[in-house]
Design a protein around this nucleic acid. Structure first.
Lengths: 137, 137
DNA sequence: AACAAACTATACTAAATCGGTCCACAATAA
DNA sequence: TTATTGTGGACCGATTTAGTATAGTTTGTT
């Protein structure tokens, strides 16, 4: 029931970018150093964030990364889902055929877990990176 | 962000026991067959549930397992924690020294994740197995 | 044009975790 | 005393995690 290391790094990277003037481009190397993230691994993570439209990449000399939209429009949920995919608490909720009891329609446990899943997504959606950055200033 | 298979099996096993007259002892073999859980693996899971005081084991001929307390006193959280240990969304929340930013006291992201963690635990605590069983009758 | 600075894409790897099995043993009822 | 049930720990193959490596592409500068 935990987030993985890549997600942790991703949140730190986005928080870092949120602390800069909006639109500013910064090299991965700098983020890696300041946030203590292994450089190669960060690049991989930034590609996922780019693909999901959370950051923009700029290639070539003086390239780097910038936010693709204002920090107030990026939520914790956006970042979690960009790295880990949709939150799925129980496998039966997305692959009923894998439920060996084959019970998914009626099973009260799965219903309860689905509600948990919804509530987690709602919770994560409530935090955007402008808010989060305000607290660190 | 998902529960593992063992937890899924554990919930099914406790739900199964909740459907019997309170105190009734049933062999692991029977639970395994009816709930479609690999027998050996189920035994391992039942040992965890026994250790946490959720079920009671009875050894020897005519032995088996029974609930250690009334289904209304067993929550989803109890079962999840018996199998997976405490819910810890982000490693920094329980091992600040592992946070490579070493930032745990002030980091707004970690604060947000801690709140998520609390809310998840609260959510899971709201469901007991009497409730869950009612819905399946 | 050529070079260096940056990101991209894919493959690879060591270590940990997951899902499960096996085996020798202990307790208990008949 | 024997068959039946659970216990405890070792073991195992597959998958995931966390990261590294290698080769290539884009772009600004000279």
């Amino acid at each position: 029931m935990k987030l993985n290391q890549a997600t942790d790094y991703a949140m730190r990277a986005v928080l870092h970018l949120s602390g800069l003037p909006y639109g500013q481009v910064v090299e991965a190397k700098l983020i890696a150093e300041e946030e203590h993230i292994p450089m190669r691994f960060l690049l991989k993570i930034l590609r996922l964030l780019t693909k999901e439209g959370i950051v923009e990449s700029h290639r070539g000399v003086n390239g780097g990364y910038s936010l693709a939209r204002h920090p107030s429009k990026i939520t914790l949920l956006d970042v979690v889902e960009a790295i880990e995919g949709p939150i799925t608490v129980n496998r039966c909720l997305y692959a009923p055929e894998e439920c060996s009891k084959n019970f998914s329609g009626q099973c009260p446990v799965h219903k309860a877990l689905f509600e948990l899943q919804q509530s987690m997504a709602e919770h994560l959606k409530r935090y955007n990176f402008q808010m989060l950055h305000e607290h660190v200033k």
